[in-house]
Structure formats: C-alpha cells, structure tokens
Amino acid sequence: MEKKYQVFVSSTYIDLLDERKEVTQALLELDCIPIGMELFPASDEDQWSFIKSVIDDCDYYLLILAGRYGSCSESGLSYTEMEYRYAIDTGKPVIAFLHQEPELIPAKFSESDKEMQEKLASFRSLAQKKLCKFWKTPTELSAVVGRSIVQLKKRSPAIGWVKADLVPDEGASQEILKLKNEIEKLKAELSKQSNTGVDPSDLAQGEEIFSFPYTAKAKHGWNDYVEVQLRTEISWNSLFASLAPSMANESDERNLQSKLNQTISKLEEKVISKQKNFSGYESYAVVESDILETIIVQFRALGLIQKSTKNRSVKDKHTYWSLTEKGDSLLVGLRAIKKI
C-alpha cells in the first residue's frame, strides 16, 4: 500500500525562505507531506497546544538551524527550540540540519544580541547530540535532506498516510485487530510452553546484587547541566519491588524507564548530592535504556513478567509488560506489610 509521510519542518522563517523552499521541494519529490508552523506564531498557550498536536500527527521532525535563534516564549526558549525539545521528549524520529559555517552568514540573518547568540550556540550544541547533518547552501541542503529522509525512513519506519479509499472499512479493521490479538495470545501461550533452555536456579535473583552505571545530573540553569558517571548496587528483589507495581495492570517501557530513574535517584540521593558542583542544585539520576532492557530480560527469564496481550489501537507501537502469576505473588510477598 503506497504511503506518504508527514514531516514537520521547524526553523526560523524570514532568514531561511530559500532554504525552506528547497527542503519543501525535496520532501514533495520523496512523497512526503511537509508541514511548517512558521505562519502560525505561537503567541499563547492554546496556539502552543495546537503546534504540539500537529507534531504528534507527523511521522518525522526536521530542524533547520542557521544564524537566527528565533522569537522566545516567556520561558526564555525560542519556539523553534521548544518544538525540537517536544519532538525529542515524545520519541518522534528527528534529524537536524545545521549550517556548517554560521560565522559566514550575513549579519542581517544572524543574531546581533549576545544573549541570543549564546542561546543559539547552546541550541546547536543540543541538536548535535542527536542525528544531524551540515550544509552551506540551499541547494546543498536540499540534497542532504533528500538522502537523509530516505535513510531515516529505513531506520525508523513510521505509520504514514494512505488515501481514504485504500483504508479498510470499520468492519475489516475490527477483524484485523481481533486476529492480531489472537496471534498475540497464541504467541504468549507458545512462550509459556516453550523451554528457554535457561535454568532459573542459574540466574541472579532475590537478594543478589546487580551493579550498573548511571549518570548523575545537576541542573545549574535553563540549559546548563553538570554530569558525572557513577555506579549503583541494588538487589534484584528491590528492583522488582520498585518496578513491579507499575506492571500490576500493565506498563510500557517509557514508564518503566522513568520509574527506574526515580528509583536510582532516591537510592543514590546522598551520593549524588555530595558530588562536586552539585550542592544546592536540582539533581537526579539517569539510567541508560540498555540497563532497563537487561532488567526486563532478567525478569522475563525468571518468569516474573510477560508481554501484555490487552487490546489497543493498531497505531500503538509501544511494548507493554505485565506481571505473570509468579510475578504477582512475588510482588505481594515483597510489598505487603507484615505484622510486628
């Protein structure tokens, strides 16, 4: 089924008219639908809510950054940066295109205010932490965007859009969803019956200690952080007691990641607060996603959790986890208050 992909194009406007024209043409040639909010100034909360809803509906987010930082909200951030941060926070596939030689951009298209220059530099630094490409001319930008979008669609497949006459009717959609759920149930049953080849007695569990690294962060300003790499130690029972309540019904991995960060932040609170340049500042712990993946695999191998088989929208691509009967029993044993 032929699909078109909606791409949110975010940038300042007047200084990048030629660049936006080239990018729009490149996207159209790739069967993409370019969407830009530069004609709808985000002057109030309602308008910002609308912009967020548009980003939510897009398949990909594209940032063009040159010599201007853009108009700022009351928070001090430009709306372009707010859009970028929102796309990152919501897990939208993003790619940034940064001018390779910003010092050569004409003065009329560059920030003259020192504070705005510093904000722009900080924004560039933030964008370079994710997937980004560089360009010098509008024509070069068009070519780079074309190649990059093709790669991005392969690396991060999106839902896309199709013509209404190609979409199954409501009855067909319900039947597809029903069959999908049946397949998931059968997979779950097969998983229960299959032998993983792992003897649970050979696995770390209970009060045995799991040691792993994490990043401690202290926020010094609106976009100024101090970081230090540390390690923590926690028992498997403590980890399960902390994460399992979220899966008593079901929980996706984003929620579990947040819960894991909160758990380690609380566990390591005293250690983090004693770090250099951390005193008096908001601080917290961030655990890499691969650590959560290891924890999930361990809980699965121990027979404590399983993929949820609840019905949900066919557009929902997140992975959800729920407790097995064994996991629920362990949770009750760990968290129930015993009489003195």
Score class of each variant (00 low, 15 high):
262 Q>A: 13
145 V>A: 02
1 M>T: 03
24 T>G: 07
89 D>S: 12
93 P>E: 00
126 L>E: 13
302 L>T: 01
145 V>M: 02
61 Y>T: 05
14 I>D: 09
123 F>Q: 01
239 L>K: 04
102 P>T: 00
222 W>S: 15
64 I>Q: 10
258 S>Y: 08
335 R>L: 12
21 K>G: 03
308 S>R: 00
174 Q>K: 14
72 C>L: 14
36 G>M: 05
159 I>D: 10
280 G>F: 03
38 E>N: 12
317 K>H: 01
332 V>S: 00
27 L>N: 04
55 I>N: 04
128 Q>F: 13
95 I>H: 09
284 Y>E: 10
16 L>P: 01
79 Y>L: 13
189 E>I: 02
324 T>D: 06
254 R>Y: 09
318 H>Q: 10
126 L>C: 00
49 S>I: 11
42 A>M: 14
158 A>H: 06
331 L>V: 08
337 I>D: 05
290 D>K: 09
165 D>A: 06
169 D>T: 01
21 K>H: 12
99 H>C: 07
254 R>Q: 11
65 L>A: 06
82 M>N: 09
99 H>I: 03
231 R>G: 07
110 S>W: 06
227 E>M: 01
32 C>G: 10
60 Y>W: 08
113 D>A: 05
99 H>R: 02
193 Q>I: 02
79 Y>E: 09
267 L>M: 09
170 E>M: 03
7 V>E: 06
336 A>G: 15
336 A>Q: 12
328 D>K: 09
202 D>F: 07
293 E>V: 15
337 I>T: 11
176 I>S: 07
134 F>E: 00
94 V>L: 09
157 P>D: 03
236 W>K: 05
289 S>R: 09
31 D>E: 15
189 E>F: 12
324 T>I: 07
259 K>Q: 14
262 Q>D: 12
137 T>C: 00
73 S>P: 07
38 E>A: 00
102 P>D: 01
43 S>H: 12
117 Q>E: 04
298 Q>G: 08
163 K>A: 05
73 S>L: 08
251 S>D: 13
50 F>W: 04
107 A>W: 09
139 T>D: 15
139 T>Q: 14
338 K>S: 07
264 I>D: 09
289 S>I: 13
213 P>Q: 06
300 R>Q: 15
38 E>L: 04
58 C>P: 07
289 S>G: 13
3 K>I: 04
323 L>M: 01
66 A>C: 11
208 E>N: 08
303 G>R: 02
92 K>E: 02
273 S>L: 06
32 C>P: 10
